[in-house]
Design a protein around this nucleic acid. Structure first.
Lengths: 351, 351
DNA sequence: CAACTTCGAAAAATCGATTTACTCATTCTC
DNA sequence: GAGAATGAGTAAATCGATTTTTCGAAGTTG
């Protein structure tokens, strides 16, 4: 600590100005790339900047404008690959445009969602990318509307009349899953989901059911939809199986549901795909390395993030017009966890 | 849009002041909870605040102080459960103290890490929680030191003389893994890792080797350590197995390695634990629902985050003294992927 | 009762930029 | 060559708070 250079205050625009022998306004112009500065002066400013290691303070810089170069992102959680990738993408896109991304997790609570939003409003963020806990009609969207915030809703939404929305095309993907399962001969399928996420769960369920019934009117589709959380879903699923129900395939409408289904299969000693088939909405890295690999619907994270940011910046820059609802196509990866019923690929079906 | 209330500017401290018939300074005091305000005036301020929906602008508020109420967090990635949970924890802890967390992903690049850090320095953050890509001796830590930033290093670090560090006790956990494997009878074990993460990889490897050799001097420990990335590791591992090597157990020093090992097992048709045993550093939710469940070392995310923030705020508040290196104990969950060599545990993967 | 505190609040400075308004020179136009 | 337009630059206002300084009134003290 001999140098005590720790305590040094950083150079401000005035330090640069006096060192270059010009006014602060001129320095500001040079930093902003305005051309009406004498080359000679610009040169001296640049030199002073170099020597002092000057960098514009983004906070002070944002102080004077109404819309600040900050974007808020609110996700239900950070622990899953989907939202992790989403935040990574959003951060990169914000950065490209010179914005700082402030991400926060609502931890699956609508109350917290609104609190975070209020805090972001306090920061006077230029815009918000909100992945609502439930759907586009929650208190958070309400708050945004009431306070004239600009934002985009993603993921668990379908469409909204006040905000642009971007989400995966759940219905189309589910229809494809239905086609695949029906083609493999499944005629008794269980769909598991969580009612809380109403918007997309509905779309996924309806997309699946419509397609399945069209292809095979005799198909039996059971639905186990928990309202409140993952553990109740587990309980309901356990009860369902305990009644002796034996569907040949399970379609889970969200990632946690896939995990719950897998662990219930384990409990009962069922193996995929011999004893039962499984497809889940949402892919994860591990799903292709386990044995069997788990079939899944892959959401186009990059596209969702990209279009969300595009829409958001269009609005930030004053774009008018009615809200646009975008649906991005998914890929369905049919892996080993799906087989044909009855065809025990190697003698499963025991007990 | 009839109301056009969108365009309204938010109430500032001066609006509140004039409405309450006091000066801005008085309003500031009331908001800060200073007691030297006549109750009557305080009351009127509070009423004005209520009526105008006034909230302090954190940006303007931070403007005047040297250290701003912003904490930066830099993680190598957001896609894994570990870092996802870490960010969630850090965010909550920062929020508790009235700070805003700005998280950014270095995307496993030291160059990007430094850039992000520079940007955070521009923001004049009060402190940084840095999970370095490689170890505590990278350019990022160097930058922090050179610029007198206050911060804490976590995860892929052991100790540093300039910054407090908090990480999992890799060596102890690895020693426990060694004990478990030796006890099960394994005498030929492969350890896979990534050299890039030098700090912790060394600790994990040494901890494992020392404990294993102490318990069973005849044990053979092979090491496949890729230097540059996951794909080279996969190639090296493939080559290793192609040579005809047949260890009875694999210990992966990091999550991606566990995934690579699993997928290589798949390729060769090996099942855990009958054909080979597997333990990985880093747990994930899916590991307990697959069949077999994968044994793993669980890192104490909450403790790491908690102590990191504690240390950071201690420094922010002026705490002096030598840097402290903290090691948090891990839990080792021995699950079905680990068995005894030779003993083909019944029940499982018959065919 | 003059001198000294104390209390509460207002006025003014400050943080670090950006932006507006204004001042001189030039250069262009008719 | 008078008047307008342009160029280059500066001083000052501004953003929305916090903090320091100043000030008046009330209360104490000797």
């Amino acid at each position: 600590m001999a140098h005590r250079q720790d305590q040094q205050r950083r150079a401000s625009i005035h330090d640069v100005a006096s060192r270059a022998g010009v006014s602060a306004a001129t320095v500001s112009k040079v930093m902003a790339g305005v051309i009406t500065v004498k080359p000679e002066n610009a040169q001296r400013v640049l030199e002073a900047v170099e020597q002092l290691g000057y960098r514009v303070d983004p906070l002070a810089s944002d102080m004077r404008r109404a819309k600040r170069r900050i974007i808020g992102a609110i996700m239900p959680e950070f622990e899953s690959e989907f939202f992790g990738q989403m935040v990574t993408q959003l951060e990169g896109l914000a950065e490209q445009r010179g914005y700082t991304l402030v991400a926060a997790s609502s931890r699956e609570s609508e109350a917290r969602e609104k609190e975070i939003l209020a805090r972001m409003h306090d920061w006077r963020v230029a815009g918000v990318v909100l992945a609502p806990v439930r759907n586009e009609h929650g208190p958070a969207a309400e708050f945004m509307k009431a306070n004239g915030m600009t934002g985009v809703l993603i993921d668990r939404v379908l469409s909204d009349d006040a905000f642009d929305t971007v989400s995966a095309d759940s219905a189309a993907a589910s229809a494809e899953v239905a086609r695949e399962l029906i083609a493999k001969g499944h005629r008794h399928i269980l769909v598991v989901g969580l009612g809380e996420q109403a918007a997309t769960v509905r779309a996924r369920l309806d997309g699946f059911r419509t397609a399945a019934l069209k292809l095979a009117p005799d198909v039996r589709i059971d639905v186990v939809l928990a309202e409140t959380g993952v553990e109740p879903l587990r309980a309901q699923l356990r009860e369902y199986f305990a009644k002796g129900e034996r569907p040949t395939a399970v379609y889970s409408l969200f990632l946690k549901g896939t995990l719950v289904a897998l662990s219930e299969f384990r409990r009962r000693g069922w193996h995929c795909p011999n004893d039962i088939s499984l497809v889940g909405f949402d892919d994860a890295e591990w799903m292709q390395v386990t044995w069997p690999a788990i079939a899944a619907v892959v959401q186009p994270v990059r596209q969702i993030a990209g279009h969300a940011m595009e829409a958001l910046f269009a609005r930030i820059e004053g774009g008018e017009g009615p809200a646009i609802a975008r649906l991005e196509p998914c890929r369905v990866l049919m892996r080993e966890s799906v087989g044909s019923p009855g065809v025990a690929a190697g003698g499963g079906q025991s007990r």
